[in-house]
Every structure is written in structure tokens, then in C-alpha cells.
Design a protein around this nucleic acid. Structure first.
Lengths: 111, 111
DNA sequence: TAGTATTACCTAGACACTCTAGGTAAGGAC
DNA sequence: GTCCTTACCTAGAGTGTCTAGGTAATACTA
């Protein structure tokens, strides 16, 4: 059974990755590092979740990939947001906000 | 493929059900009705998700069930929060708040 | 220079959760 | 007598995450 905070990602991985790419192209490993650093280590991005997610989103046309060289001169696959990806990101953020609003409203009610 | 807002529940069903039960014992059908009404129809609680969830949480000791009669005099299974369930609810709310904070912080950043 | 750590990618299999799409049964309305 | 609503239940598919491996090249360190 997955334990918090490990499985707290529940459906937020895609949107986090898309958001990361709004800062410019990045390779998978860098995406994970950036998210973990930016969250103050609150988020753990498992490679077994990340790479399948990248592949999935590429298939869906939200991102595209090109091989290149990382800062350290190693070969790495750089992902870039497509315009479909940008649209999707906006939609997911809006939907997420709605959900947080609705769920929050129920959970904050005095019990 | 599941469509929004249908799959927006993503892992929030348990906490919503537990929260519903803080108002007192309720049967499954009533839980679904209450959540849908309270959310202004924004939430759709599918029975194929709800009943397995109730069974799961009962097995985990977060809720207990007793057969009784509904308002309309029909037989219905009433679920009640256990103290383990109350603890779990608090934990899930706290974890959810943390996640919303972390993810929100990343998503709100100017891209 | 041998061993270890880090960077960087990938995959198979297990597990959990939700949904679709059925089904049962009983009471109420028309 | 038929249909709607209430109320419960389950099988199977789909999706997403995790664990736990693996590859390969570079960098550090002893």
C-alpha cells in the first residue's frame, strides 16, 4: 500500500510536469530535480512514474522531445510544451481549482 | 477514457465519505445524495466507486456498518465513523492541505 | 586505477482506485 | 401493470503510480 506523501501526487504529476516546462525545455531528470527542489523536498518524483508520464503526454501531443546534451554534457531527452500542452495545462489548473474549491468547501464545514 | 469532472475525485472519495459521516450515520445511497447536493451537483458519486470504497474503509476499520431502515422505510446499510476513522479523516485533511499548498505554490508561480 | 556515486534513461509487474455497465429487490406513482 | 426511485452489489476494463529492477556514461575518491 502506497504511503503519504508518496502517493499524494494522485493525478497531479501531469500538471506539475507541464508547468515545469513553461520555464523552457527540460529533460526528464531535470524536471524531477526541479520539482523536488522547488517543493522543498515535499514532492518525490519517482522515475517509474515520471518517464511513463512523459511518454504518455508526448503521445497525446502535449509535449515533444528532442535529444540533446545536458549541462554536464550528457545525452538527455529535452521535452518542450506544445500549444496543445499549454491549453491542457490551463484546463487542468482550472479544473483543479474547481475541485479544490468544492472539496475544500465540504471539508472545511464544521463537523 | 474517464472525462472531467468525473475523474476529478482522484483519491478524494474516501475523505469526502468520512467527512459526510461526521454529521452522523448514513447509508451509502444517502452519502452519495448528500455529497452531490452539497457540492451543487459538481460532484458525481458513482455507485461503482462508492460501494467498493465503503467496503474498503470498513475492512480498514475506519467505518462500521449496521442494517437498518431508511427514511422511506427501506432496508439500508448505515455506516458510522469509528475513532480510527476520525483519526484517518484528520490525517487525510492535513495531508491534503499540505499537497494543495505545495502544488498550488508551484502552479501559481508566474510562468 | 579500481570502486563508488551521480547523471540520465527505460521497463515490467504489482497494486490501487475509479468507471462502465451490468444486476437484484422492493416500494410508490400512474 | 409498468415504470421510476430507492438501495445495494459486482465484474471487468482502464488508468496511473510505485517498486524494483536494468543500462550506460561521466565524475569523484581512495
Amino acid at each position: 500500500m502506497p504511503q503519504p506523501p508518496a502517493d499524494l501526487l494522485q493525478g497531479t504529476l501531469d500538471v506539475l510536469v507541464l508547468k515545469t516546462l513553461t520555464w523552457g525545455p527540460r529533460h526528464g531528470y531535470a524536471i524531477a530535480r526541479w520539482l523536488e527542489d522547488t517543493s522543498g523536498e515535499a514532492l518525490r518524483i519517482e522515475e517509474g512514474s515520471l518517464y511513463p508520464a512523459l511518454y504518455r503526454m508526448e503521445r497525446k501531443g502535449w509535449i515533444t522531445a528532442d535529444w540533446g546534451l545536458s549541462d554536464l554534457g550528457r545525452k538527455a531527452k529535452f521535452y518542450r510544451l506544445t500549444s496543445a500542452g499549454r491549453t491542457r495545462l490551463r484546463q487542468e489548473i482550472a479544473a483543479g481549482r474547481r475541485l479544490v474549491g468544492v472539496v475544500g468547501h465540504i471539508l472545511e464545514a464544521a463537523g
